[in-house]
Each structure stands twice: as structure tokens, then as C-alpha cells.
Computed example of a mutant assay.
Amino acid sequence: MRTTTVAEPGWQVGVVWMGFPVVGAGLLWGVQAAAGWLLSLPWIPFRGPLRLIDSIPEPWDTVGSLALGAAVGLFFAAWAAHERLTVEVTDETLTLTRGGTPRTIDRTEISAVFFDDKKLVVLGRISEELARESHDLPAGAVADAFQTHGYPWLDADPHRDEFRRWVEDLPDLPPAVNALLKARAKALKKSDADDARELRTELARLGVVVRDDRKRQFWRLTGQSGR
């Protein structure tokens, strides 16, 4: 069975693993080097930690700041690696893997695949969203993979004109949907990505597709909604 795999380029992965520790070390070293000057500014916050940093003698303050900054950078590099999306396409299935967890979608369930800004979107047979994944994959390679295996790749969302902006207590929507959208608006305002993702899933079960634009929610109904 032919399989086409699309992942982030090796050079891009290398930049993250090498660059994040270097940037982290440089930033923390800069704070350490400027701690004395920063304490001279009466309005500067976090004076306690700055005094502690400034009190550490050389060379331990420089060594410590570089080591801690590099460790913080490595942590974020590992987090970025965990969040990377890998796409595997065959003639029969699509597999999306993030955080080491694969999710497979049968080809027969898919009606359209396209990019919505920096999201890879997969639609089902009644226009429901089977997947909406953020990514840093090469766009051309992704499109080629789907087209090579005969998937319905589109240049844009075929239902984009159906989306309407959500406002609180919209009369066109059932109370349960409005309640979920209201809770999701709060999650977006707090930048709670996990809660927003869970609420999107709950809305999908009710036949509602949601897309975001600068923390504003836009919605449309799928075929299962019966409206």
C-alpha cells in the first residue's frame, strides 16, 4: 500500500532544537547582566527576583543564567516537538499524528480537504469537520500528498460563505448551542486552548461547525442539524 508522509522539514526541526536553547540562554543572560541597572529603575516590577539574581557572585551568576536559560529553551523545544503534526496519506486512509497519538480517518468518510489559514481542515460527508489541525508543514507537499492519492483537495473552504458571526443569545440557535458558544468565547478570551477544543467537539456533536478569527467565533450548521 502506497503511503505518502508529510512532516516538518529536518532543517526546521533542527532550528527549533538548536535555536530555542540558544535564545533562552541569551535572554536569561541578558536579564542577569542587566539586573543591577534594572533595579535602578523605580518602576520596574519583580524586584525581589532581580535582587536575588544580582546578589549571586561571578562566575556562578553567568553560568547559572546560561544553563537555566538553555534548559528553558530545551523545554519549549520539546513541547514544540510534541505538538508537531505529521500527515500520512494512503489511497484508503488519512492518519494525523500529534503528540505521538495517531488518528485515522477512512477515505470514504472524507468529502473535502483544504487549508483555512494555518489550519488543515478535513470535512465529512455531511460537511462536518472531521479535523481542524494547526501545522507548520510545507503547503505544497501537503496538497500534493492528497491529490496524489485522489482525495478531494480544494483551494478554499466550500462552505465559507455559510459562516455567520456569533453574538450572545442568538435567536437562530438553540439554547444549548448558545451556552456552549458562550463558554467557548470565555475560553478563547482566557487563551484556554484545551477548553476551547473540547467545546468545539461538543458543538460538532450538535451539528455546529465553528471557526475563529481573532477570538471572534463564526458558526455554520451541518447536514445533521436538520436546519
Rank of each mutant, 00 (worst) to 15 (best):
Thr4Pro: 07
Val6Tyr: 06
Ala7Gln: 10
Pro9Glu: 13
Pro9Tyr: 11
Gly10Ile: 11
Gly10Ala: 14
Trp11Ile: 15
Trp11Met: 10
Val16Asp: 12
Phe20His: 13
Pro21Asp: 11
Pro21Arg: 07
Gly24Leu: 10
Leu27Asn: 04
Trp29His: 07
Gly30Asn: 04
Val31Tyr: 02
Gln32Lys: 03
Ala33Ile: 03
Ala33Thr: 03
Ala33Arg: 04
Gly36Cys: 08
Trp37Ala: 13
Leu38Lys: 04
Pro42Arg: 09
Phe46Thr: 08
Phe46Lys: 08
Pro49Ser: 13
Pro49Met: 12
Arg51Ile: 05
Ile56Arg: 12
Thr62Gln: 03
Thr62Leu: 13
Thr62Ala: 15
Gly64Ile: 03
Ala67Trp: 09
Ala67Met: 15
Ala71Lys: 11
Phe75Thr: 12
Phe76Lys: 10
Ala77Cys: 14
Ala77Asp: 09
Ala78Pro: 03
His82Cys: 02
Thr90Phe: 10
Asp91Phe: 11
Thr93Phe: 11
Leu94Gln: 00
Thr108Arg: 14
Ser111His: 02
Ser111Arg: 04
Ala112Phe: 13
Ala112Val: 08
Asp117Ile: 12
Lys119Gly: 10
Leu120Ala: 04
Leu123Gly: 02
Glu128Asp: 13
Glu128Arg: 07
Glu129Ile: 08
Arg132Pro: 01
Gly140Ala: 08
Ala141Met: 07
Ala145Pro: 08
Gly150His: 07
Tyr151Lys: 02
Pro152Arg: 10
Leu154Ile: 04
Leu154Tyr: 03
Asp155Ile: 01
Asp155Cys: 01
Glu162His: 14
Phe163Asn: 06
Arg165Lys: 10
Trp166Asn: 10
Asp172Cys: 04
Leu173Tyr: 00
Val177Leu: 01
Val177Thr: 04
Asn178Ser: 03
Asn178Gln: 03
Lys182Asp: 15
Ala185Met: 14
Lys189Phe: 12
Ser191Arg: 15
Asp192Gln: 12
Asp195Pro: 04
Arg200Ala: 14
Glu202Tyr: 06
Arg205Ala: 15
Val209Lys: 03
Val209Asn: 13
Asp212Cys: 05
Gln217Gly: 10
Trp219Met: 03
Arg220Asn: 01
Thr222Glu: 10
Gly223Tyr: 00
Arg227Trp: 06
